[in-house]
Design a protein around this nucleic acid. Structure first.
Lengths: 340, 340
DNA sequence: TGAAATACGTCAAACGTTTGCGGTAGATTT
DNA sequence: AAATCTACCGCAAACGTTTGACGTATTTCA
């Protein structure tokens, strides 16, 4: 059994209340006695019992993280891995613990289906990362927990959000390619392409085309499965051989598209330029290194954690708002001016 | 405020003890009353308060996961990502929650430096994944927590372990390459190479050579930084141009080695074969697809979680033992018979 | 039919903290 | 010197459960 506050009280010959105050630096205990108590606590290897404390303070100093997709696919996504790292480090800095769980992919029917740590463990707040079913959000609202969403935009229920400026990212990357001299730029991968982050990127692409007075051609767009940049790139190239650059909805798809080019004996970037989004580790390590759009994933996680913690302190008076993260194009060897 | 057991008791007109027993399916309450209570509990959206319960049962139904490396590098490691996914799913199945934290990379001085959830939150058990400083383990022992180690072997303190049969893996892969006809096989990457998992793989390599009566040559081994398969491969090739196959300590290094070959205008596998370990996602997606040794990371995580949970139930009587996971060579296009 | 067993509930203590209220000194003010 | 403050500390309730030890009816057995 570990030492409790009572043990210290008995040892010193003073009431438990005094021990509690001394250990928490609260007023009402003489400096001398406080020193004595803290010394004794150290000796006895005392550490507060979180559950007992939480029972009276009504706080767990724990926040929960949930996501909709399968755990494995979530964790193997390098983008979220970076965000998660940022979250963890920030929480640790503030002495908060982190629990995480997937909602299992399927829609939940009632509050009781929420991850256990939310409903039973009573985390102080929850972070939602990535796309999630709107119904699950409503369940979360029912339990009145402070929450914050990362990398996903919700139309209906207003909720605090930390998000990437995907539209701007799409525009910047397109601007860059146009600046290199490209006129026939394809956009591949990502399903569905009528909502969500990939859609935003596509919108940015259209914004840029319009600005540069390049006509938008539907046939240069090829929707595809999440990991299917390979086929998409081939399809669009078969339809439109004049294409000199391919933008993929993210880096994974871009890498797949590169492999597709290699298999058709096209050289990157001499024959065709390729670019992606996210700047995952694999982007820098691919061959050739991939031009992409970077967002500071770690900082994003830290900011998200920070804002959630602030909400907990401030009694949640401020209306929900979005924090949008800037991006930057990182130029690598997979893009070059078209040969003409 | 959420409904408590007291609220239900008042509503039904019965003692809280009865409510508790009814909700936990304990004997001592009539079937009819139990139904009535459960129905009312549902109506009131009651859910037990984990902290209050834990206070008396002395259990949190939570396990903690720690690792020594930086959070970001841990999460971006595809191998551990897979293991983590397995752990999470198994824990969820048993209604346990998961907390995780890094020890920050540096050695800890006292129990108080351990992640908060271990010392204050009082997790029921802890999983240690990857290499960890021996001193930190001793601290863990001090707090008398059931624990289990994953993917790392400890010489001194005996402790339950779930581990990959790295030596055998090294031998199998070497056997395969020798079977293809290779005689000059290099082994690159990984530091340090005198202990740990990479060393085990190297041992397996030597085992195989001996068995096939191929002399072991020190100059075919090139230690290198964790992500430095690129330089290592170049160095060893400069020293020994007769090399026809390169084994890397893991897939990341193998991919780097492939890039190194490309940069020297060597074709894989026509000019040189390359193979790795772990079978991370990138291995299948590299060009050419990488021959490697697979271990079922997810199953490994599940098994680890399962065994830890068992320890909690069984009052921890059984002596610590190792569970070693089998491996299999997956043959892909990055290896072929030498041209001679 | 009286005693013993059974079934169903109540009581209250306990888990380890925090915190408002009250009390007792000694110090300071009139 | 009496009255008023402060500074310090003790008392006890409260947080929401679980659980062993007791009570009562009601049934069962001899």
């Amino acid at each position: 059994m570990r030492a409790t506050i009572k043990d210290i009280a008995r040892e010193i010959g003073v009431n438990v209340a005094t021990i509690s105050r001394a250990l928490n630096n609260k007023p009402g205990v003489s400096a001398e006695l406080q020193r004595k108590i803290q010394k004794k606590a150290l000796e006895m290897h005392y550490s507060p019992h979180g559950q007992a404390r939480g029972l009276v303070t009504q706080r767990t100093e724990t926040i929960g993280l949930i996501f909709d997709s399968e755990t494995s696919s979530f964790l193997s996504n390098p983008f979220y891995g970076g965000v998660l790292a940022g979250i963890e480090s920030e929480l640790r800095r503030h002495n908060f613990s982190l629990m995480f769980s997937s909602t299992g992919g399927h829609k939940l029917d009632s509050v009781a289906d929420l991850p256990k740590f939310i409903i039973e463990h009573r985390v102080d707040g929850v972070l939602i990362v990535g796309s999630i079913d709107e119904r699950n959000i409503r369940l979360l609202h029912e339990v009145q927990l402070p929450m914050l969403m990362i990398d996903y935009h919700l139309e209906e229920n207003p909720i605090d959000t930390v998000i990437v400026d995907n539209r701007r990212a799409g525009k910047m990357l397109t601007d860059y390619l146009v600046g290199l001299g490209h006129r026939h730029i394809a956009f591949v991968g990502g399903r569905p392409l009528d909502e969500g982050n990939f859609y935003e990127r596509l919108c940015g692409y259209r914004d840029a085309l319009q600005e540069h007075e390049i006509p938008y051609r539907r046939e240069l767009i090829q929707e595809g499965e999440l990991e299917g940049g390979y086929e998409s790139a081939q399809q669009v190239l078969a339809r439109a051989p004049e294409v000199t650059a391919i933008m993929a909805c993210n880096d994974a798809n871009a890498c797949a598209a590169m492999r597709a080019m290699v298999s058709k004996s096209l050289r990157v970037p001499e024959d065709i330029s390729i670019a992606g989004f996210d700047d995952i580790a694999a982007a820098a390590e691919s061959w050739p290194p991939l031009t992409t759009v970077r967002v500071d994933k770690c900082a994003m996680g830290r900011t998200a954690a920070q804002r959630l913690l602030q909400k907990l302190k401030n009694d949640d008076t401020t209306p929900p708002y979005e924090t949008v993260f800037p991006t930057e194009v990182v130029r690598r060897a997979s893009t070059a001016a078209p040969r003409k």
